[in-house]
Design a protein around this nucleic acid. Structure first.
Lengths: 241, 241
DNA sequence: AGCAATTATTTGTGATCACAAATTCCCGTC
DNA sequence: GACGGGAATTTGTGATCACAAATAATTGCT
């Protein structure tokens, strides 16, 4: 209706996608405030669609709304991290198990290929590529069992964790806590269509990956990215969800 | 900021709460369209806060957004219901187990009292009161384990299921599928602080309650409530939650 | 210089408007 | 009577504006 071309998604939707992607890719620094007008200026649009995109992210718990209406990147606490890990295990184990009946050799091959991509990203020390491929690996698996219910729930949890993954992104952590061996367990369980083993492998992968987070010192102020949160926002390139 | 009094919440927030409550209480009929201007007129406010409240509910999957931007109450499918049940079991079993360490006798007493309220609501055939007390029972339990992570996830799932609970609300179903005996199992497990038994009791309660949904004929058009969806929206009375 | 009070700026909120797309309604035709 | 097409209405979208609260900056005082 307000959209110029028929095929074009709404401005609010594209803004949401761009912000969401920035969060998942680790461009948002925990604790920093996000302003409606700031993002609107960066994107060259009016505040209206930005406001809606931000509120949507708040609804998905990716951002928090302070008492004064200020939107900011949440600050992590030990308790919250523990809860997030529990939620990930709950949801992703079930999603993986639900995927088993729909698993084909083609999917397993694709996951293996993604796993090699992850390894390459780790070797290259490419943090962003690591995050993208790692996310792709998990969601490729969960999408098989498919559903409009589990995936949004899982995405919400990932959005809540993502801003803090930056503290595991030092080259040292990246190599020490390589997740690829756990992913191999997942792939092997898939090849055998062994739902029980798959559940354990997924749980192990999650616990292992988060281990790096718990050990790191994510409570002290950030030092790597001094830029504003809005710096990394790129226009949404795809129309897909 | 636009709020008139300091203690008053934002208009958008109160609108959201009113709509959410209406959904949870079963006032929204599946499949019916919801319009921004319609609700805005009913509440005597401008479309702006209504738009944001609706989008928030869409983000929480309580409502769906069609390709043309139309907001409507989702239509249930068998597959979706199965997924929702799985999600409820996943999340609520874990939330209940996490609550065990924080359980006090006072909480157990309160749950017993709520359970009696549920029984009275069933005897009286008071559907709304049944929904309210039943919801109160579950969330009172889950709130003990606390958390800013699990509760929103569980609430999202409940919001997705709620519009379809109307099909279990006939007096016949209400008495036949009384959940109180399952709740007794939950309370007994809590008294023994038996996390494992509690998990099974919660799962049994969920499966049992949804049994009524699966057997009922929720696919054919609605006949009980001929009124508009906006009819049941009352002003948000509390500032909480 | 350090701190408190005041001013200036920024920011979120909600209303209103214009526009285009989608929906609905109505009428004519077969 | 059912179906199709076009006008009238409804609806979502995004921009702009006014306002008040909150934050930042500045001034004045000790």
């Amino acid at each position: 209706m307000g959209s110029s071309r028929p095929g074009t998604q709404s401005l609010q939707s594209r803004t949401y996608r761009a912000l969401r992607r920035s969060i998942l890719d680790g461009d948002f620094v925990p604790g920093r405030a996000v302003t409606i007008r700031g993002i609107a200026e960066d994107l060259g649009i009016s505040p209206t669609p930005v406001r809606e995109a931000l509120r949507r992210l708040v609804a998905e718990r990716a951002l928090t709304l302070s008492a004064t209406g200020r939107v900011s990147v949440p600050v992590m606490t030990r308790e919250k991290l523990a809860e997030l890990v529990n939620a990930r295990i709950c949801l992703e184990r079930q999603a993986a198990i639900d995927a088993v009946p729909g698993i084909t050799d083609r999917v397993v091959t694709r996951l293996s290929r993604l796993n090699r991509s992850i390894d390459r990203a780790i070797e290259a020390g490419d943090h962003r590529r690591y995050l993208v491929t790692h996310r792709d690996f998990h969601f490729t698996l969960y999408r098989v069992g498919g559903g409009e219910v589990f995936l949004p729930l899982i995405e919400s949890v990932w959005l809540q964790i993502s801003p803090f993954l930056r503290y595991t992104l030092s080259g040292e952590h990246l190599s020490r806590y390589s997740t690829s061996d756990r992913h191999v367990e997942i792939i092997e369980a898939l090849e055998r269509r062994d739902a029980t083993a798959l559940g354990f492998a997924v749980e192990a992968d999650i616990r292992h990956g988060i281990g790096a987070l718990i050990e790191s010192d994510w409570n002290r102020p950030d030092d790597t990215a001094a830029g504003a949160n809005t710096a990394g926002i790129r226009a949404a390139d795809r129309e897909s969800g």
